[in-house]
């Protein structure tokens, strides 16, 4: 596989009620807060000002918060590809829909029972008309993300890629997104992606 001189331009972590932009912690709340309260507090702190946020499920809210942090200091071209992955798919919301199935189900819950909806929500908010894919993996797979991002970039299907991991299982979440482009200091490699992912997961 080629090494096209791509860089990990920027990255964001959300875990244990802490949001990191690169190495800097930009926000945190008490760990005792429920997931919904943490998401609401983050939304307020980051001044996201996007009422549709409140209609989204947990996975999408996490994606919107993460991309808000990641995109803040960059011009994000509309062809920026989104390459996300997780192990639980949309299971959290699936269970919610499942519970309602005895009676009348909610269309606004059902629509979120697909993991790729988070790609749609980010695309709508940031006006990205680009390549999207959602991979389901047992665990964070740096090699897959690195190689697929490179394939898209080399084939000139995109000029930048946001790739990473966004998992929500039993109210526990783990979010790690990177912006990949020709700018920045950290070379794009399987090792570097892994290192950055693990950094705050220790």
């Amino acid at each position: 596989m080629s090494n096209g001189n791509y860089k990990i331009t920027d990255y964001v972590h959300i875990k244990d009620h802490r949001i990191f932009h690169g190495k800097d912690q930009v926000f945190k709340t008490e760990k005792s807060l429920g997931l919904d309260q943490f998401l609401k507090a983050s939304y307020k702190k980051l001044e996201i000002a996007y009422p549709k946020f409140h209609k989204m499920d947990g996975l999408c809210k996490l994606g919107i918060i993460a991309s808000e942090v990641l995109f803040k200091e960059h011009f994000i071209s509309p062809d920026t590809a989104l390459v996300f992955s997780n192990s639980a798919s949309s299971l959290e919301t699936d269970k919610k829909h499942q519970q309602a199935m005895g009676g009348m189900v909610s269309p606004s819950v059902f629509v979120y029972t697909l993991p790729n909806i988070v790609l749609g929500e980010i695309s709508i908010k940031h006006k990205l008309q680009s390549e999207n894919v959602f991979f389901i993996e047992n665990q964070f797979n740096a090699e897959l993300l690195k190689e697929y991002a490179e394939v898209l970039l080399e084939a000139k299907k995109t000029s930048a890629v946001v790739c990473g991991w966004i998992d929500l299982k039993n109210a526990k979440y783990d979010v790690f997104l990177c912006l990949i482009s020709k700018e920045g200091e950290i070379p794009l490699s399987k090792e570097n992606l892994k290192k950055l992912y693990i950094f705050e997961n220790e």
Partner: peptide, 17 residues
């Protein structure tokens, strides 16, 4: 209020429920 097509569907559910 800027409601959309999914909101209409939710209102239909509410009407019945």
């Amino acid at each position: 209020l800027g409601l959309d097509s999914i909101d209409v569907l939710e209102l239909i559910v509410m009407l019945e429920k």
